[in-house]
Simulated scan of single mutants.
Amino acid sequence: MLRLAKQKSTRNLFISVPIVVFFILGSIYSKGALREVPIAVYDQDNSTLSRTYIRFLEASPTFKITHYITADDAIENVFVANNVDGIFYIPKDFHKNVLKKTQVQIKVYTNSTNIVLGNLIYRSAIQITQLVSGSVVVKRMAPLGINPSKISGTVLPIQVNTKVIGNPQYNYSYYFIPGLSIVLLQMIVFIAASRAFNTEWKANTYQELYSTANGSVLAMLFGKYAALLIYSLGLSAGVLAMLFPLLGIPIYGNILSLSALIILLITVNIFLGFGLSLIFKKELIALDLAIFYNSPAFVFSGFTFPIWAMPWLNSTYAQMIPFTHFLTGFLKIYQLNTPIHFIWPEVWKLLVFMLVAFLFILIGLTINRTLIFPAKKEAALWN
């Protein structure tokens, strides 16, 4: 631990980088759910019903009407000129056609360059339009002396009753921050571990380390593992005990099960990093490979796009990253509050990565044995 603390790069990895990056990420998604999306309205009908529809839009927490379009405005230019993400077009004779029981359409233009905003506007537009349509039918039947409370079964004969399991608030901070925080934690651990031995060779401090460990490579391996594990657990505790409460992110599952899974992920990444550090004695090459291997972890994990929908080459690569399997188990505990025995498939897969890591370590010990066992090298030269 003392040797790690003396390395400026390691201090930056475990202290400076997390403080800056984690809280910047937290501030980006601190708003949580998207509200008051700027939209424009083109009311060509200007009737009582069209104004009622606009009031429904204004009352929705999703939308904020920032611009009203006139006949002189070109709709395709409004998105850029007025900085809106959606346009609602109410056609002429809207109210008249409704009274004549002629089907009419509300046209909704969405800026789907941001697919999140596009889907949100579309979903909210459907909800508001259905609500207004139901109100029109109820108002039409009211003069007939029918109790409005008994009309709902006629207006909407089939209802959908949804129960959201996992992030029922549709909060982006609950969704993105945990995954991003853990993938950054993994990258920090892997990068630090990939410098464990080649840094010693580069700085000519390996002989000192070798003597301190009494010539035991196992002592060096597990001593460095224990030190990195303690630093990583401190970083994990900072995320779970400080970042999550500060941003109000709930943990629905068992915290002990979650901690055990995180320790397993950290352990796998430490030993994979050790293997890289022992195989490639040039620190820069090991770092490049560590970054190349870990950088796409978030994209390939299925967090932003389902793995089953990816091309086979991409989905195969996704299975070769420990974070992919960790994330599945993490979401089961963190969001779905499932018992720990449901994550055994993910645990076994992470243990396979552990075996691969030890295989890499053995390969590294074999390739660089003259550097790793300096006493034997000196004895050979003496003879």
Rank of each mutant, 00 (worst) to 15 (best):
Leu2Lys: 08
Arg3Cys: 04
Leu4Arg: 01
Ser9Arg: 14
Thr10Val: 15
Thr10Asp: 14
Phe14Leu: 09
Phe14Thr: 03
Ile15His: 09
Pro18Phe: 09
Pro18Tyr: 04
Phe23Asp: 06
Ile24Gly: 10
Gly26Ser: 07
Ser27Gln: 14
Ile28Cys: 09
Ser30Lys: 09
Leu34Pro: 00
Leu34Ala: 11
Val37His: 09
Ile39Thr: 05
Tyr42Leu: 13
Asp45Lys: 02
Ser47Trp: 14
Ser50Ala: 11
Tyr53Pro: 00
Ile54Gly: 08
Phe56Thr: 03
Leu57His: 08
Glu58Thr: 09
Ala59His: 06
Ser60Trp: 02
Phe63His: 02
Ile65Pro: 03
His67Ala: 07
Thr70Gly: 15
Asp73Asn: 15
Ile75Cys: 09
Ile87Val: 15
Pro91Tyr: 01
Pro91Trp: 00
Phe94Tyr: 15
Lys96Thr: 12
Val104Ser: 00
Lys107Trp: 00
Val108Glu: 05
Tyr109Arg: 03
Thr110Glu: 07
Asn111Leu: 13
Thr113Tyr: 11
Ile115Cys: 07
Leu117Gly: 07
Gly118Pro: 14
Gly118Arg: 12
Ser124Ala: 09
Thr129Asp: 00
Gly134Lys: 01
Gly134Glu: 03
Val136Lys: 03
Val137Phe: 07
Val137Ser: 05
Val137Ile: 10
Val138Leu: 11
Val138Lys: 06
Leu144Gln: 15
Gly145Leu: 13
Asn147Asp: 15
Asn147Ile: 07
Pro157Asp: 01
Pro157Val: 00
Gln169Lys: 14
Tyr170Gly: 12
Asn171Cys: 09
Ser173Leu: 04
Tyr175Val: 02
Phe176Ala: 02
Phe176Leu: 04
Ile182Gln: 00
Leu184Ser: 01
Leu185Asp: 00
Val189Phe: 11
Phe190Met: 14
Ile191Ala: 06
Ala193Arg: 01
Ser194Gly: 05
Ser194Leu: 03
Arg195Leu: 12
Arg195Thr: 07
Phe197His: 10
Trp201Glu: 12
Asn204Val: 03
Asn204Asp: 08
Ser211Lys: 13
Asn214Asp: 15
Val217Asn: 05
Phe222Thr: 12
Phe222His: 13
Gly223Gln: 07
Gly223Cys: 05
Lys224His: 13
Ala226Met: 12
Ala227Lys: 12
Tyr231Trp: 13
Tyr231His: 06
Gly234Cys: 14
Ala237Asp: 10
Gly238Lys: 14
Leu240Trp: 14
Leu243Gly: 10
Pro245Ala: 09
Leu246Val: 14
Leu247Gln: 05
Gly248Thr: 04
Pro250Met: 05
Ile251Thr: 11
Asn254Pro: 08
Asn254Val: 04
Ser257Asp: 09
Leu261Pro: 00
Ile263Thr: 03
Ile270Arg: 03
Phe274Tyr: 06
Ser277Asn: 08
Phe280Thr: 02
Phe280Leu: 14
Lys281Pro: 08
Ala286Arg: 03
Ala290Asp: 12
Ser301Thr: 01
Ser301Pro: 03
Thr304Phe: 11
Trp312Arg: 09
Asn314Thr: 11
Gln319Lys: 02
Leu327Glu: 01
Thr328Leu: 10
Gly329Glu: 01
Leu331Thr: 02
Lys332Tyr: 05
Lys332Leu: 12
Gln335Val: 06
Gln335Tyr: 14
Phe342His: 09
Trp348Gln: 08
Leu359Gly: 14
Ile361Lys: 02
Leu365Gly: 05
Leu365Val: 04
Thr366Glu: 08
Glu378Gly: 04
Ala379Glu: 13
Ala379Gln: 11
